[in-house]
Amino acid sequence: MNPILRNILAVILGLVLGSVVNMSLIMLSGSIMPPPEGADATTMEGLIESMHKFQPKHFIFPFLAHALGTLVGACVAAMIAATHKMKFAMAIGVLFLIGGIVNVFLLPSPTWFSIVDLVGAYIPMAFIGGKIGKKLFSKKNS
């Protein structure tokens, strides 16, 4: 396969699969960690209005969703990319970070969570995912 097409495919699949992981964990979170009494977590407006009711435990799954979605996306990108595997993994991290920044502005959450999420869930996870993806790819092709 043409290396340019393969690299484009790496980014697209990294974003798609990372987003699937992210959304799956977000959708699963309500059944494992129910939202506070009276909070409507089904709409953005409901979340905004009830955010003050959320306790730190309610932010575990959003963080995990962002971190694991980025990790999987970066890992996939690194495995598929024909060249510059780590750069493509980090690009996934940057794209997810941009989404996280947008989310901070759209859905006001506690400052501590915004900082932990933006600092810990994207770039570090993209780096780890890139390392894992490179290692898996090298073992696969050995």
Rank of each mutant, 00 (worst) to 15 (best):
L15Q: 11
F54S: 05
L47D: 05
L13I: 03
L106M: 14
L95W: 02
G73S: 06
P62W: 01
G120C: 02
G46Q: 10
I132T: 00
A121Q: 01
A82H: 00
G30H: 10
M90N: 10
I12L: 13
P110K: 07
V16S: 02
L47E: 06
I12H: 06
I8F: 09
V72D: 04
E45H: 13
I101V: 14
P124M: 06
D40Y: 05
P124C: 04
D40P: 07
I32D: 09
E45V: 04
F63H: 01
F88L: 05
V11W: 09
M33I: 15
I32Y: 08
V72A: 03
V116R: 10
L71A: 00
G38R: 03
F105G: 13
S19H: 13
F63E: 04
K87C: 12
N2G: 04
M33R: 13
L17F: 10
S114M: 13
A10C: 07
S109P: 11
A78F: 00
I4M: 15
E45G: 15
K131A: 12
G38Q: 06
V104T: 14
K134G: 14
K139W: 15
P110H: 04
M44V: 15
A41L: 03
L64E: 01
T83N: 15
P36R: 05
G38E: 04
L136A: 11
M125P: 05
H66R: 12
L136N: 09
F105W: 15
F88M: 06
I8E: 05
S142P: 15
A67P: 03
P62Q: 02
V94C: 01
A67D: 07
P3L: 08
A126T: 02
I8R: 02
N141V: 14
M44I: 15
G129M: 01
V21I: 11
T70H: 11
V11D: 05
V104S: 14
F113W: 00
F88H: 08
A77Q: 07
P124W: 02
K139F: 14
V119A: 09
I132V: 11
A121L: 01
G93T: 04
F96H: 12
T42H: 15
G30Q: 06
M86H: 07
E49N: 11
N7Y: 00
H66F: 04
